[in-house]
Simulated assay, not measured.
Amino acid sequence: MDVYPVGCELVWRRAFPGIAEHAHSAREFVAFLLADMPVLDDAVLVTGEFVANALRHTASARPDGRFIVEVRRRPDSATIALTDQGGPKEPTIPNVDDMSECGRGLYMVRALASELTWSGSHAGRTFTATLKDGSR
Protein backbone atom coordinates (compact mmCIF):
# COMPACT_ATOMS: atom_id res chain seq x y z
CA MET A 1 0.00 0.00 0.00
CA ASP A 2 1.51 3.24 -1.06
CA VAL A 3 -1.37 5.66 -0.60
CA TYR A 4 -2.73 6.77 2.76
CA PRO A 5 -5.16 9.64 3.24
CA VAL A 6 -3.32 12.55 4.88
CA GLY A 7 -3.02 11.99 8.63
CA CYS A 8 -4.66 8.57 8.54
CA GLU A 9 -3.62 5.10 9.51
CA LEU A 10 -5.08 1.69 8.86
CA VAL A 11 -6.26 -0.20 11.94
CA TRP A 12 -7.24 -3.83 12.49
CA ARG A 13 -8.17 -5.64 15.70
CA ARG A 14 -8.83 -9.32 16.36
CA ALA A 15 -9.55 -11.39 19.47
CA PHE A 16 -7.92 -14.80 19.92
CA PRO A 17 -8.67 -17.62 22.37
CA GLY A 18 -6.08 -17.68 25.14
CA ILE A 19 -4.55 -21.02 24.19
CA ALA A 20 -1.09 -21.70 22.84
CA GLU A 21 -2.38 -23.04 19.52
CA HIS A 22 -3.57 -19.53 18.65
CA ALA A 23 -0.17 -17.88 19.06
CA HIS A 24 0.61 -18.92 15.49
CA SER A 25 -2.69 -17.43 14.27
CA ALA A 26 -1.87 -14.11 15.95
CA ARG A 27 1.54 -13.99 14.28
CA GLU A 28 -0.04 -14.86 10.90
CA PHE A 29 -2.61 -12.08 11.37
CA VAL A 30 0.17 -9.52 11.83
CA ALA A 31 2.31 -10.99 9.03
CA PHE A 32 -0.57 -10.79 6.55
CA LEU A 33 -1.33 -7.15 7.37
CA LEU A 34 2.31 -6.01 7.23
CA ALA A 35 3.63 -8.36 4.54
CA ASP A 36 5.17 -5.63 2.36
CA MET A 37 6.68 -3.53 5.15
CA PRO A 38 10.35 -3.53 6.19
CA VAL A 39 9.29 -3.97 9.84
CA LEU A 40 7.50 -7.26 9.10
CA ASP A 41 9.94 -9.63 10.82
CA ASP A 42 10.24 -7.44 13.90
CA ALA A 43 6.46 -7.08 14.12
CA VAL A 44 5.99 -10.86 14.02
CA LEU A 45 8.64 -11.32 16.75
CA VAL A 46 7.04 -8.66 18.92
CA THR A 47 3.63 -10.26 18.48
CA GLY A 48 5.04 -13.64 19.50
CA GLU A 49 6.59 -12.19 22.66
CA PHE A 50 3.44 -10.32 23.62
CA VAL A 51 1.33 -13.47 23.13
CA ALA A 52 3.79 -15.65 25.06
CA ASN A 53 3.71 -13.21 27.98
CA ALA A 54 -0.10 -13.05 27.94
CA LEU A 55 -0.33 -16.85 28.02
CA ARG A 56 2.37 -17.24 30.67
CA HIS A 57 1.59 -14.40 33.07
CA THR A 58 -2.07 -13.38 32.76
CA ALA A 59 -5.64 -14.58 33.11
CA SER A 60 -5.83 -14.76 29.30
CA ALA A 61 -4.61 -18.38 29.56
CA ARG A 62 -7.47 -19.45 31.84
CA PRO A 63 -10.38 -21.45 30.38
CA ASP A 64 -12.42 -19.10 28.17
CA GLY A 65 -9.56 -16.57 28.32
CA ARG A 66 -8.61 -14.43 25.36
CA PHE A 67 -6.29 -11.72 24.17
CA ILE A 68 -6.75 -9.01 21.57
CA VAL A 69 -4.17 -8.01 18.98
CA GLU A 70 -4.38 -4.61 17.31
CA VAL A 71 -2.29 -3.55 14.31
CA ARG A 72 -1.91 0.08 13.28
CA ARG A 73 -0.20 0.69 9.97
CA ARG A 74 1.21 3.98 8.73
CA PRO A 75 3.41 4.62 5.68
CA ASP A 76 6.66 4.49 7.67
CA SER A 77 5.74 2.51 10.80
CA ALA A 78 3.51 -0.06 12.42
CA THR A 79 2.21 -0.40 15.95
CA ILE A 80 1.42 -3.75 17.53
CA ALA A 81 -0.72 -3.77 20.67
CA LEU A 82 -1.88 -6.72 22.73
CA THR A 83 -4.53 -6.46 25.42
CA ASP A 84 -4.60 -9.31 27.93
CA GLN A 85 -6.93 -10.13 30.81
CA GLY A 86 -4.51 -9.05 33.51
CA GLY A 87 -2.46 -10.73 36.16
CA PRO A 88 -1.23 -10.18 39.69
CA LYS A 89 2.30 -9.02 38.84
CA GLU A 90 3.32 -5.64 37.48
CA PRO A 91 5.29 -6.11 34.24
CA THR A 92 9.00 -5.28 34.36
CA ILE A 93 11.97 -5.37 32.06
CA PRO A 94 14.61 -7.06 34.19
CA ASN A 95 18.34 -6.65 33.82
CA VAL A 96 19.54 -9.79 32.08
CA ASP A 97 22.98 -11.24 31.68
CA ASP A 98 24.44 -14.12 29.69
CA MET A 99 23.40 -16.60 32.37
CA SER A 100 19.76 -15.48 32.69
CA GLU A 101 17.36 -18.24 31.70
CA CYS A 102 14.28 -16.06 31.28
CA GLY A 103 13.18 -12.44 31.25
CA ARG A 104 14.35 -11.56 27.76
CA GLY A 105 10.94 -11.08 26.08
CA LEU A 106 10.17 -7.45 26.86
CA TYR A 107 13.90 -6.71 26.84
CA MET A 108 14.01 -7.88 23.21
CA VAL A 109 10.84 -5.97 22.31
CA ARG A 110 12.35 -2.79 23.76
CA ALA A 111 15.46 -3.33 21.62
CA LEU A 112 13.39 -3.80 18.43
CA ALA A 113 10.83 -1.05 18.95
CA SER A 114 11.22 2.69 18.73
CA GLU A 115 8.70 2.86 21.58
CA LEU A 116 7.39 0.30 24.08
CA THR A 117 4.64 1.13 26.58
CA TRP A 118 2.07 -0.63 28.69
CA SER A 119 -0.92 0.49 30.68
CA GLY A 120 -3.66 -1.05 32.75
CA SER A 121 -3.87 -2.99 35.97
CA HIS A 122 -4.31 -6.47 37.39
CA ALA A 123 -7.68 -6.55 35.57
CA GLY A 124 -6.11 -6.17 32.12
CA ARG A 125 -3.12 -4.57 30.43
CA THR A 126 -2.29 -3.34 26.96
CA PHE A 127 1.26 -3.63 25.68
CA THR A 128 2.14 -1.46 22.70
CA ALA A 129 5.25 -1.45 20.51
CA THR A 130 5.87 0.96 17.66
CA LEU A 131 8.22 -0.18 14.92
CA LYS A 132 9.56 2.40 12.49
CA ASP A 133 11.40 1.73 9.27
CA GLY A 134 15.01 1.86 10.34
CA SER A 135 14.13 2.14 14.07
CA ARG A 136 17.14 0.06 15.15
Rank of each mutant, 00 (worst) to 15 (best):
Y4F: 15
C8T: 11
C8P: 01
E9C: 13
E9V: 12
V11F: 05
R13T: 14
A15K: 14
F16L: 00
P17A: 13
P17V: 10
G18S: 07
G18M: 02
I19R: 15
E21G: 14
E21C: 07
A23G: 15
H24W: 12
R27S: 05
R27K: 15
R27V: 04
E28H: 08
E28C: 09
A31H: 01
L34C: 07
A35D: 07
V39I: 08
V39D: 06
D42V: 02
D42L: 10
V46W: 02
G48D: 04
E49N: 09
E49K: 01
F50C: 06
V51Q: 01
R56C: 13
H57K: 07
P63R: 00
P63L: 01
D64I: 00
G65T: 03
G65E: 04
V69N: 00
V69R: 01
E70C: 03
V71K: 01
R73M: 12
R73S: 13
S77N: 13
S77M: 13
T83K: 05
T83P: 03
G87A: 05
P88R: 08
P88W: 02
K89G: 14
E90K: 11
P91A: 11
P94E: 03
D97Q: 08
D98S: 14
M99Q: 13
M99P: 03
S100K: 09
S100R: 10
S100A: 15
E101N: 08
E101C: 12
C102D: 10
R104V: 15
R110D: 11
L112Q: 10
A113H: 09
S114N: 14
T117A: 11
T117Q: 10
S119I: 12
G120I: 06
G124L: 03
G124F: 04
A129T: 11
A129G: 13
D133P: 02
R136D: 06
